[in-house]
Simulated scan of single mutants.
Amino acid sequence: MKVMFYATFREIIGRRKVEVHGVRTVRELIDYLAEHYTPEIKKQLLGTPRVGPDKPIDGMVLVNGHNVFHLKGLDTELSEEDVVHIFPPAGGG
């Protein structure tokens, strides 16, 4: 699958996009990225104080244009043909 990174996540990973194979869920994808690129991506997505029962991911993960928050969250299933977009949390005010 293709995984695209935006803003600070692009800087953390050091690439605009990567190809990933063999992961079955968003949770496995995040673990894979942490293991093969940098643990910082997992820390930023799952380890901030803003993550909790009502917000499983700090940022936005889209699978084929659909926000995983509206699917199965971290348990959203992935296939080799998917395109995943990973965005950091939006700031502003």
Rank of each mutant, 00 (worst) to 15 (best):
K42E: 14
E40L: 14
T48W: 03
M60D: 09
P49N: 02
K55I: 03
V51C: 11
M60N: 13
V51Y: 10
P56R: 09
G52R: 12
L62A: 13
L33D: 10
P39K: 00
K55F: 00
R50W: 10
V51P: 09
E40M: 07
Q44N: 08
T48Y: 03
P49R: 00
E35K: 15
Y32C: 08
L46T: 10
Q44D: 06
R50S: 10
D54Y: 12
Y32P: 05
K43Q: 14
G47E: 12
L62M: 15
P49H: 03
P49A: 01
V61I: 15
G59K: 07
T38N: 04
I41E: 08
Q44T: 04
K55S: 07
K43P: 03
I57A: 10
I57Y: 07
L45M: 01
L45V: 04
D58T: 07
M60Q: 14
L45S: 03
Q44R: 15
Q44C: 07
G59Y: 08
K55W: 01
E40T: 12
L62C: 14
I41L: 07
L33H: 08
D54L: 11
V51A: 12
A34P: 05
L62R: 14
D54M: 09
P56M: 14
I57F: 09
P56C: 09
T48M: 02
G52W: 07
A34N: 04
P49T: 04
P39Q: 00
P49V: 00
E40A: 08
T38V: 07
K43C: 02
K43D: 12
K55G: 01
G52Y: 04
V51S: 12
P49Q: 05
G59V: 09
G52E: 05
K42C: 07
T48P: 04
G59W: 09
Q44P: 03
D58F: 11
Y37G: 04
Y37V: 00
D58V: 07
Y37C: 02
A34G: 12
G59H: 10
P56L: 11
I57P: 07
I57V: 15
P39G: 00
Q44S: 13
K43F: 06
L62I: 13
I41P: 08
D54V: 06
V61T: 05
E40P: 02
P39M: 00
T38I: 04
G52I: 06
P49S: 02
D54E: 14
P39D: 04
L33R: 10
E35G: 04
Q44A: 14
L45D: 03
G52L: 08
V61M: 08
K43A: 13
G59N: 10
Y32G: 05
L33M: 06
V51D: 13
V51I: 11
A34I: 06
K42R: 15
M60P: 05
P39H: 00
K42M: 06
G59D: 11
V61G: 05
L46P: 12
D54C: 06
E35Y: 09
K55N: 15
D58Q: 05
L62K: 14
V61W: 03
G47S: 00
E40N: 05
P53R: 13
T48I: 02
Y37N: 04
D54G: 14
